[in-house]
Design a protein around this nucleic acid. Structure first.
Lengths: 212, 212
DNA sequence: CAGGCCATGTTAATGGAGTTTACATTAAAG
DNA sequence: CTTTAATGTAAACTCCATTAACATGGCCTG
């Protein structure tokens, strides 16, 4: 009775990298059925191991979710930083690119995005989670620092406030219209166009010129 | 063997208004443990009936959630409309009051808000749900109509776009900073102040005067 | 290269909870 | 008084979480 000899042969008794495999499985399940749509046992099944195996790597389901979110924030940070591109070609264009990167991430990585923002996870269940989230926000914050420095000192808004404003715009649009999932609202324009125009008007209100 | 005679006497064999009682129970459970934090059976337990009773009123958990959300959108609409107050005392002030009402709703009715926006419910699982959501948005939309009419025709933005922008701001802030739940990020200012300043800058960008 | 440690998985057992079907009771109508 | 639809109940069934006891094999040490 050779019980699934191929699988066992393929990976042996030990999985080799179960931790990452579980995170990957969780991502796929979240993408399929939402952040509440999987159980610890489901993740184990998807990874091809017994239901007890995950306990060697994660205390419980929430710990697994927290690690998915942490990984997500790391990639998010990288994506926002790539959008900013050190302020090239000019700070204002680069700022808009950060906004685009935000929406691109939400659309191309809905599973990470859901784990990060819609899983009901407290931002500081873990020191590491909180830290990675802060690092991602810091990209936005630092971009805002650069931008306000372009304005005459008398009319500089607080950079923290400005970064919170832009974060709320991007997050609002991503949450409401950002994902391709069937159920979303239809729009007369794309989420990207919507955010672009919103940021444009906002920055006009702060007295930025359209271009540098 | 008088099994809980008092309760039975109090309501008789039939509950009388189980449907509403289940919605109420769901709200309390959502407020406690988040939109994923309750089951059909939990709701039944909270309402004081057996686990199978809810099936007489709702096809499944999702149908119950949809009705909570529908009720939520109705109250939401009323709250936004009260904030608008027909454009009194003046349209710009009234518009800001709509924003405040949005945040107030998110804070004072976190259960409704979660069911409406964070439950993973598709906007059109139900005709009624979709309709009630549209009616709530229509308040914002109509306020925007009134506002753009204040601008000289040459510089009028599309009112639909403007309403989507403001919706995304309010929703973004409510989602990120709006609830008192322990886990949220700390801020240098209140969510209300943040939204107020954001809308102010945005409207300045559109060329609105600070006051009428 | 042998021996043994220990991280990693497996099986099995237990307890608890959710869902669902078949049956029971009440209220209201004829 | 009987019928019938609405409303609940009870119990079977399935699945999940969790733990304990055992198995495997990679890798360090001598």
């Amino acid at each position: 009775m050779a019980w699934k000899p191929s699988e066992r042969e393929a990976r042996g008794y030990h999985h080799g990298n179960l931790r990452e495999a579980l995170i990957q499985a969780a991502r796929e399940l979240i993408a399929e059925k939402g952040p509440a749509g999987f159980t610890f046992a489901d993740a184990a099944r998807s990874a091809g191991v017994s239901a007890a195996a995950p306990y060697r790597h994660f205390r419980d389901r929430e710990a697994l979710m927290a690690d998915v979110a942490r990984e997500g924030f790391q990639r998010f940070e990288a994506m926002l930083a790539a959008g900013w591109a050190g302020g090239k070609p000019d700070p204002i264009t680069a700022f808009h690119n950060v906004g685009k990167a935000y929406l691109t991430f939400a659309r191309t990585e809905p599973a990470y995005y859901a784990a990060m923002f819609e899983s009901g996870l407290a931002p500081d269940v873990t020191k590491e989670l909180r830290a990675s989230a802060d690092r991602a926000f810091a990209v936005l914050r630092q971009a805002a620092d650069t931008l306000v420095a372009l304005l005459p000192q008398a009319r500089r808004p607080p950079a923290l406030m400005m970064s919170l404003h832009v974060w709320s715009m991007a997050h609002g649009i991503a949450s409401l219209f950002g994902r391709g999932d069937a159920g979303r609202r239809s729009l007369p324009m794309s989420a990207e166009e919507l955010l672009e125009s919103e940021m444009l008007i906002y920055m006009q209100g702060l007295g930025f010129p359209q271009k540098v």
